[in-house]
Simulated scan of single mutants.
Amino acid sequence: MLAQIGDRIVLEGTHLNDARRTGLIVAVAHADGSPPYEVRWLDTGRTTFIFPGPEARIEHREPAGEASEPSP
C-alpha cells in the first residue's frame, strides 16, 4: 500500500456495526509512500499515526488540473 500527502484512507469496519472511517493523509514516513501514515480523521479532526491493515484502502487524489470534465 502506497500513498501520498492529500490521499484519503478509508478503514472498513471489521466487526458487525463498526463504522467506516475516512481520513486525510497529512504526512508519510517514507519517500516511497509506504506506511506509517499520519492521518487527520474527518469524523473527529484528530491526527494519529497508523500502519494500515487489510481493512484499509487508499483513495488517491487527482493531480491538479486533471479533474474530470462534466458530461454534456
Rank of each mutant, 00 (worst) to 15 (best):
A29C: 03
L11F: 15
P35M: 03
G65R: 02
P70E: 12
Q4R: 12
H15Y: 14
R57A: 08
H60M: 03
R21Q: 15
P63K: 05
E69N: 10
I5S: 04
T14K: 14
G65Y: 01
T44A: 05
I5A: 03
T47W: 01
L16M: 14
R40M: 14
P72H: 05
L16W: 14
G33K: 01
L42K: 09
G53L: 09
I58K: 00
L2P: 02
E55W: 06
P63G: 00
T14H: 09
G23E: 02
F51G: 09
T48W: 07
R61W: 03
R61G: 04
A56N: 01
V28D: 01
E55T: 06
A27Q: 14
P63T: 00
A27G: 03
R8K: 15
L42I: 10
G45T: 02
L2W: 05
L11H: 09
I25V: 12
H60C: 05
L2S: 05
R8D: 06
P70N: 12
A31S: 08
P36Q: 03
G45W: 02
G33I: 06
D18A: 10
I50W: 03
L16I: 11
V28L: 00
E66M: 10
R21F: 13
I50T: 03
R57Q: 08
G13M: 10
V28T: 09
R57P: 00
P52C: 06
D32S: 00
D43T: 11
D18P: 07
L11I: 13
L42Y: 08
L16F: 15
A31M: 04
G33N: 01
D18K: 06
W41K: 05
I58F: 04
T22I: 14
T48S: 12
P72T: 11
L11C: 12
L42S: 10
G45K: 07
E55Q: 14
E62T: 15
G13W: 10
P35G: 01
S68P: 02
S71A: 13
P36Y: 02
A3H: 02
E66R: 10
E62Y: 03
A64C: 02
S68G: 08
S68N: 09
